[in-house]
Amino acid sequence: MPRTDPIGESRLIQWVLIGISLTFLAFIVFLPLTLVFVEALRKGFGVYLAALKDAETWAALRLTLTVAAISVPLNALFGICAAWSVTKHNFAGKNLLLSLIDLPFSVSPVISGLIYVLLFGAQGWFGPWLRSHHVEIIFAVPGIVLATTFVTFPFVARELIPLMQAQGTEEEEASLSLGASGLHTFWHVTLPNIKWALLYGVLLCNARAMGEFGAVSVVSGHVRGLTNTLPLQIEILYNEYNFTAAFAVATLLASLALVTLVLKTILEWRYADQLAASHKH
């Protein structure tokens, strides 16, 4: 068979590989996604809109956005701190910190939720203290924020660490030696160098924060209109034989995910040069 490119695979193999990938994508990603929209609109657009206007669905949407609005900035901040300390400093326990950052990826979300029940639940370690001080964490918004933050913690840090490692500390040292303060150095040197990676990490973190089911399910208490997030609301609607509404709400989540994806693509396309430049040393 004639060799057509320097990598050396024949054209046939290329086409087979591309074909497999596309078929796989079509069945695993595209088909279910289409199905969500088809099911949601099956009874017509009016029914679809009515399903989205439901007060409990609105409350769930508000809660989901509130939780994301708290946990994503927190994780962006903690992610930067963690990546900063891991890549720009040497200290005892650095490897431990690195493993801890990955912990939420390796622990089942349900376990993550249970950890908080064990800590803050009425029978948990801090339960009696919290009750005597009238602080609600579990089965309330703070618990949902905590669980979501825990589950989505690695996204920003994971995105930043390799980049910051590759970039080294020379630019920061240059800035400090030029008389800039630490904060000035961070704002004008470190942050601009990592901003695309940071934005990318924040997008991923946000997508997961809004879609998280397992951990949130454990700490939510499922109080309608108060502690149900969008994914929990979808489950409830589905279990109430309210399939059209369930899929309608699912299209909300899917749309949020699609917006994320589009933003990410635009970012990559718009800033391809800077991304390449900032990855170069």
């Binding site: 927190l74 903690f78 918004v141 303060s181």
Partner: peptide, 25 residues
């Protein structure tokens, strides 16, 4: 520098908790 970052982190965390508390109450 690290101190300032910590302070910012603290402020954001406090804000977040206040917001969460407002929502839940």
């Amino acid at each position: 520098m690290r101190f300032t970052t910590l302070k910012t982190a603290g402020t954001v965390a406090a804000l977040a908790l206040t917001l969460a508390a407002t929502v839940s109450f």
